[in-house]
Design a protein around this nucleic acid. Structure first.
Lengths: 209, 209
DNA sequence: AAGTAACTTTACACTGTGTAAAGTTGACAC
DNA sequence: GTGTCAACTTTACACAGTGTAAAGTTACTT
């Protein structure tokens, strides 16, 4: 698309990404991004109608750079339901830190801006679908824990894999990213797979190195 | 204290509570609260130096009305570690919806306002202590699941019981409050208690009625 | 009658988003 | 060279909400 080859537009996106990832979060203003891109504040509005749109465009830009689609598709190849759950947790869990800065800004905006809310919901709905697919794979194997309906299990997985939970463990509690992923694999298995981790299968739960 | 007997102050607090609980969240302005209390906007600033302080005072007011201290203390009486975990999950989990409106406003404020952040951290640190106490009780029984240090277990419990997780399940996914509490009791037990729920003990996990 | 506390009214500073419009610059067309 | 067009800059302003400042009102106290 022409949008990806427009140099000024790309410079703005890269600046937004850099500032947001540097920890600014909701404190990054349009003027900061403009300054970082070496462009006037008004020029930013020439390319993006508003802040919410710029944030969304930034996540899409980052997605492209990291080949997110590829990652997620690969996470769906796994054979058994358990393997698929583990690979989904890993794929999404490792994606979060890549876009956390932008998502944080979007989260902060979403309860005062309708556009930001819509963008956020759209994104999170996609994540929910990944969770639902993992749960469906478990169910197809007859491995879904008793006590939860498929929908409840999806809700639980979605909540456990939420950006907020990642934020709390990795940002506030200082967890290491690798520890987060293995712990999440372990916990989601304990909760969602029938029989829990009683019989240890081929999937390794504890830190590998 | 005179602060609790000052009628205007109390009217402001009650108005703030009502508006916030009605779902306003971050969208409730100082002028809305003033209007609801039948007082000028400036009068609010006569009683509370800023919005963050008003929000904090509102949670304290609600705490007092609901005898929160009593509830939490009672949750620590339970005998075994497992019972104590379940009663802590219940006590805190059932407290969240009572103050959710105010907490939501505080959460929205905390990444742009240092005072709100400090107030939030203070509150959440208290919750963390409750989590740490429950984990310590499990550990004293030798019932803490292997694979987690006491600190990690505290982090996990704290994250699972976060306001955000409650929000996602009960607000976004439409879970019933009672279901939330029983599911959380079940999940925290599965993850934190050694042996999981393999041997079903005296604690009921599934909905009671 | 003076004083004082609690409140109102009016007004303004500040921050950040988004809109509006006129001016600059460089490339390309003919 | 002249024209024109797009991309960008500059300047200015509307708007929302928080918080500050100060003068005015009211009613109760002594």
């Amino acid at each position: 698309m022409s949008s990806d080859s427009n140099p000024t537009r790309v410079r703005i996106l890269k600046s937004a990404w850099a500032l947001l990832e540097a920890g600014g979060g909701g404190a990054v203003r349009m003027s900061d991004i403009a300054k970082a891109a070496g462009v006037s504040r008004q020029a930013v509005y020439l390319h993006f109608p508003n802040r919410a749109d710029l944030l969304v465009a930034t996540t899409r830009y980052i997605d492209g750079v990291h080949d997110i689609d590829g990652r997620l598709v690969r996470s769906r190849i796994a054979g058994s339901g358990r393997e698929r759950l583990a690979s989904w947790v890993e794929a999404w869990g490792n994606y979060i830190p890549l876009v956390y800065g932008v998502l944080k800004a979007l989260m902060a905006m979403k309860d005062s801006d309708a556009e930001a809310l819509a963008a956020w919901n759209d994104r999170m709905q996609a994540v929910r679908e990944g969770c639902a697919a993992a749960v469906a794979a478990l169910q197809a194997d007859g491995a879904l824990a008793e006590g939860f309906s498929a929908e409840e299990a999806t809700d639980v997985l979605w909540a456990m894999l939420s950006v907020r939970t990642w934020e709390q463990l990795c940002q506030e509690c200082g967890w290491d990213q690798a520890r987060y992923v293995t712990a999440m694999q372990h916990m989601t298995e304990q909760i969602l797979v029938s029989g829990g981790s009683g019989g240890k299968g081929p999937i390794r739960y504890l830190p590998e190195k």
